[in-house]
Amino acid sequence: MKYLFYPGCSMEKSAIPYLMSLKAIEDKLSMELVELEDWNCCGATEYSAVNRIASHALVGRNLAIAESMSAESHTLVAPCSACYLNLSKTDHYLQEDRIFKARIDDALAAGDMSYTPGSIEVRHALDVIYNEIGLEKIKANVVKPLKGLRVAAYYGCMIVRPDLHGYYDSHEYPMILEELLEALGAEVIDFPMKTHCCSGHMTQISGETAYELIRRLIYGATRYEADLMVTLCPMCQLNIDAYQSEANRYFKTDYVMPILYFTQLIGLAFGIDAKDLGIGQEFVDPRPALAKIDVEVDEAPAATKKRRVKEEGLPMPQMPGKNGGGD
């Protein structure tokens, strides 16, 4: 089945493992992802904070490109939650608000482009894999069940909220990721924090705000004894993975909660080599967790590599009476 594909900026940079793993399972799921030609940034949560009309015109260009390629498919797949929401939101408001549509039409016309609202169906990668490809197809490809791996299914916000097109059964307690992970053989834990915020861009704005939101999530997953968290969003992955040490430092905690993309777990269950799924590029080392399902990863993540320091290297001050330093 062919789908139009909007990777988004993160997928080519910080979330490269997500793109690699999605590409690695494409064939087995009988998906063909046709990338939009010369797509631009979706604006994330930043453009609409500065210029409202321009933020939607920015997205409008991507929708117009999608429409021009609709001979391939009418469904546009976005794997990033923010990209997904921006694309679907612009399409939604273009259908709902005629004055708004006139303004976006005007802006797009300046670039000799146009978009017919509703002509493209925007879907998130998880939604397409669960609802279009289906669990039967997934189960049929599982050769290495993730038996014994305890996972916390983490959705984040923007896939299930505001859900303008009504694809999800719950804004706060969806179950499709759990069902998918169970189909892979994993043991899915209860995770009440599953649609709570990862703090989004707050790591760049107010560390105190961001680290508390990150702490809640890793605390929740640890409390329910998850081996790792599973995500479907580049922003969530970056915050939980790359900022976990900062959050630990801030709260003087020592949580170790790895986080992988759901596409990476699908790939592992399909028997694909961890390296080809981009596993080994994390900050928080997932190897102890993956050892439970006999997955070996050659490369040690750089951030958790221990610096080699000679035991007898530097003379350290010693307290009298301790470690034989006095009497």
Binding site: I53, A57, L58, R61, A109
Partner: peptide, 13 residues
């Protein structure tokens, strides 16, 4: 092309 679109959008805004 993108610049023209964004420029026009900012005028409208």
């Amino acid at each position: 092309q993108l610049s023209k679109i964004l420029h026009r959008a900012k005028e409208l805004e």
